[in-house]
Design a protein around this nucleic acid. Structure first.
Length: 578
RNA sequence: CGGGAUGUGGCCCAGCUUGGUAGGGCACUGCGUUCGGGACGCAGGAGUCGCGCGUUCAAAUCGCGCCAUCCCGACCA
């Protein structure tokens, strides 16, 4: 394409409303423009990158045996009522009524629609397993869209759904998708890592998130430096520590007056004890039932772990009324002794034999409290947030922290949807059985943004070759010198004739402007056609990433570039085949 | 929804304290010079100063209300 004919508005100013580098560069490099909060238009260059990525996704999904479909974005409320999500899905689900006053929503995800389709068409074990996917626009009415396309409301997503006869089959489908995801992100040249994740309210047995490593990422990742354990912070486990019987005698419980002392910090300062000797008592409302969660004073409760342990639908910190009901005192003085609630404790309480906690009485705390003697703990469990240098649950080495951008997520759904929506088949014996499902998502735009986060420098984007909108740009330094420009045009035609997507920067601009733009939009290879080298019968090829420049005879340039581009492809596919 | 900030040609911003003819840089149009890392000169086009109400002889500027955007938090298959 000739640059002069392209719709490619580049800018040198950093847009004032863009925080992340990827967001800034996507605007500056003319990839996209914002329409309204969390809603973006892709411009030709940006859409090209999107399509490049989608093509990689399609190839790998097809290779893994999935088949592409295209499902509706507008969905009837009935389906969502059937799965139970019409009530449970929050305001993220954009709901509206059509002219007949029928309730509808814009699809934030497609479990309901695909399950409806499959239950109507698949009746026998002979038709299983199946894996169907689509690349489609999702709408989620996020409370606070931010970071450009990273967390927006309308976005492209590849979502796949597997249907199997049983758990064993589902495991195989899951594995295939997991492997396909590894190939997809590897082919894009991204530094990523799969991490164990909580399956959240979508339900299901377990899941993995695919994280592109980036300090700007919204997600905290825990990983082990010694083995390959890696997990989302909210999922990362702590093993039950060995129980060393508490040594020595614990003096009898003593009530101490602690006027106005509520927080752990205040308690420690007032009583002159370390946070490790204090027990925090948090009152939660689990589907309306009060539960007391105990944790050592220096630790934080992981609400997701509590929720999963209790198996409740809604978990929130208790309000003042509930706190007063179970403790008989205002907020800030809760303790386990005499509390009117089920007591569960984090593993961090194991081995604590002489601790400080609230007295369930305003302005009083207890010291010399001994769990088991002064109160009973119903259950011990892993309920806390992992900290850096905690032991790895697999090998015991130290856990480290990093940040990442979630670009993919694979779930084992089990029968959550197939049961609710009665997606069943007949097995060999003619018995009706429920299908076992999995679902697998990739954020298209988010992956592109993540690629920029990981591949840029002060001058702009540095596209990995497989995602580059064009692999090559030809830059004649002066279009008014006929010899020079026609040499550039000859190369342009030669490359196009060989199927290379190439930009010819035919603008009557100074060379510096063209170089800056080529760098900004991140084209991997730039051919500079200038008077000095051309007089020697040569052109220069500059690699965007390394800055390396080589001069080649004009007649060899096209073949060299073609070889370079296909060699890179080959190297990547070899790499991921091993 | 709570806290904070910002809204001035397409983009980045000044002007507001102390009310008085709306400015600069980039971009854009024309002409000339220049031409291997975001050139220069001259001439030009382009703005309901987010919206509404109020105060005032007079509001971009002061007051009130609203809207939008961004950041932090809460929230989030």
């Amino acid at each position: 394409m000739r640059y002069s004919e392209m719709f490619l508005p580049t800018g040198r100013e950093v847009p004032s409303d863009a925080e992340l580098i990827s967001h800034q560069l996507m605007i500056r490099a003319g990839l996209m423009r914002k329409l309204t909060s969390g809603v973006y238009s892709y411009l030709p260059l940006g859409y090209r990158v999107i399509r490049k990525f989608e093509q990689i996704v399609r190839e790998e999904m097809n290779r893994a045996g999935a088949q592409e479909v295209f499902l509706p974005m507008v969905q009837p409320a009935e389906l969502w009522q059937e799965s139970g999500r019409w009530a449970h899905y929050g305001k993220e689900l954009l709901r509206f009524r059509d002219r007949h006053d029928r309730e509808c929503c814009l699809g934030p995800t497609h479990e309901e629609v695909i399950t409806d389709l499959v239950r109507n068409e698949i009746k026998t074990y002979r038709q299983l397993p199946r894996n169907l996917y689509q690349i489609q626009t999702k709408f989620r009415d996020e409370i606070r869209p931010r970071f450009g396309v990273m967390r927006c409301r309308e976005f492209g997503m590849k979502d796949a759904y597997s249907f199997d006869m049983d758990e064993a089959g589902s495991e195989i489908s899951y594995r295939k998708m997991f492997d396909a995801y590894q190939r997809i992100f590897t082919r894009c040249g991204l530094n990523f890592r799969p991490v164990e994740a909580d399956s959240g309210s979508i339900g299901g047995k377990y899941s993995h998130e695919f994280m592109v490593m980036a300090d700007s990422g919204e997600d905290a990742i825990c990983y082990c430096g010694a083995c390959n354990y890696a997990a989302n912070l909210e999922k990362a486990e702590i093993s039950r520590p060995a129980e060393n019987g508490p040594a020595g005698m614990t003096p009898p419980v003593e009530e101490v007056n602690t006027p106005g002392v509520r927080t752990i910090k205040e308690v420690c300062a007032f009583l002159g004890v370390a946070p490790e000797a204090v027990v925090k008592t948090l009152i939660f409302s689990a589907d309306g039932t009060p539960v007391a969660v105990l944790i050592r004073g220096d630790q934080e409760v992981n609400e997701i772990k509590v929720k999963n342990f209790l198996g409740c639908d809604l978990l929130e910190l208790a309000d003042d009324a509930m706190i007063r009901k179970v403790t008989g005192s205002p907020r800030g003085f809760a303790g386990a002794v005499g509390i009117k609630a089920r007591i569960i404790a984090d593993y961090s309480l194991l081995g604590m034999a002489d601790c400080v906690m609230g007295a369930n009485r305003e302005d009083f705390h207890l010291r010399h409290v001994k769990p088991g003697r002064d109160f009973l703990i119903a259950d011990h469990a892993d309920l806390r947030v992992v900290r850096e240098s905690d032991p790895c649950p697999r090998c015991g080495a130290e856990i480290r922290f990093a940040r990442g951008i979630e670009v993919g997520h694979v779930f084992k759904l089990g029968t959550k949807y197939s049961k609710a929506m009665r997606a069943a088949y007949l097995d060999r014996e003619g018995q009706e059985r429920t299908m076992v499902m999995g679902c697998y998502g990739i954020g298209i735009g988010r992956t592109v943004a993540a690629a920029i986060e990981q591949n840029h420098d002060a001058d702009g984007i540095i596209w990995p070759l497989p995602l580059a909108p064009y692999p090559v740009i030809i830059t004649p330094v002066n279009v008014n010198e006929k010899v020079l420009f026609s040499a550039a045009e000859d190369l342009y035609h030669a490359l196009e004739a060989n199927g290379v997507e190439v930009i010819l920067d035919d603008r009557d601009e100074r060379a510096g402007v063209k170089f800056k733009d080529a760098d900004l939009i991140g084209i991997p290879y730039r051919v500079t056609v200038g008077p000095k080298k051309l007089a020697e019968g040569k052109m220069e090829i500059k690699t965007r990433r390394s800055g390396e420049v080589i001069a080649l005879p004009v007649s060899e340039v096209a073949a060299f570039l073609i070889g370079l581009i296909s060699a890179k492809d080959l190297a990547l596919s070899t790499k991921i085949c091993t």
